[in-house]
Amino acid sequence: MKTVATFILNSILGWKVENSFPKEPKKYIVIAAPHTSWIDFPISILVRISQGTMVHFIGKGSLFKWPFGYFFRSLGGTPVDRTKSNKIVDAIIDLFNTKEEFRLALSPEGTRKKVAHWKTGFYYIAKGAKVPIVMATLDFENKKMKISEPYYVTGDLEKDFEYFKLFYKNVKGRNPDLS
């Protein structure tokens, strides 16, 4: 499966991957940005398969209904109900604390639409679960996904977000006007 995914990603689609998802630590959050198109998902899945590293994801509950629910779950997905005011951050921290190995990909924008500010849930999950953040780009202009080394948040939200934003500087999503 790795070979097929790598062939599709590199030879057919022309994407390159700079760095690999870290094998250590065994638990971390991946923030992938910019998230501007549904095409981000299959590219990310191909990267994940080609690297041989399971990275889970969450998605809106409607994606996990029949007929696609089984498919998304088999890819490592978990549905979330975004209509209810639930404590999703606390639930994900608990999930990290119960697993020996767990990597979770999130979009810091929280949507494919243009946003003025990133959501902060991923930050508080990393802080609460005491896991690092690994940044991954979805740079369609250069057809490249770049993966960072693990970064442990400092507790200074403003300083940490400046660090994150530097990593994504000049990265163009599939729909650059939404980046």
Rank of each mutant, 00 (worst) to 15 (best):
T3D: 08
V4A: 15
F7N: 13
K16A: 08
K16S: 06
S20W: 09
F21D: 01
K23P: 00
E24M: 11
K26R: 14
V30P: 00
A33L: 12
A33R: 00
A33T: 08
H35V: 01
H35I: 07
D40M: 01
P42R: 15
P42S: 07
S44M: 11
R48D: 01
R48F: 13
S50P: 03
V55C: 04
I58D: 00
I58W: 02
S62C: 12
S62R: 05
S62A: 08
L63N: 02
L63Q: 02
F64L: 11
F64C: 15
Y70E: 11
R73P: 00
R73N: 10
L75Q: 07
G76Y: 13
G76A: 12
T78E: 10
V80T: 13
T83S: 05
N86R: 13
I88R: 09
A91I: 05
I92F: 05
D94F: 04
D94I: 03
F96E: 04
F96W: 05
A105H: 02
L106G: 00
T111H: 07
H117L: 08
Y123A: 03
I125R: 01
K127R: 11
G128N: 05
P132V: 09
I133A: 01
V134R: 01
F140C: 08
N142T: 06
S148C: 10
Y151M: 04
Y151K: 08
G155Q: 08
G155I: 15
L157R: 15
F161I: 07
K165Q: 11
K165I: 10
L166C: 01
S179W: 00
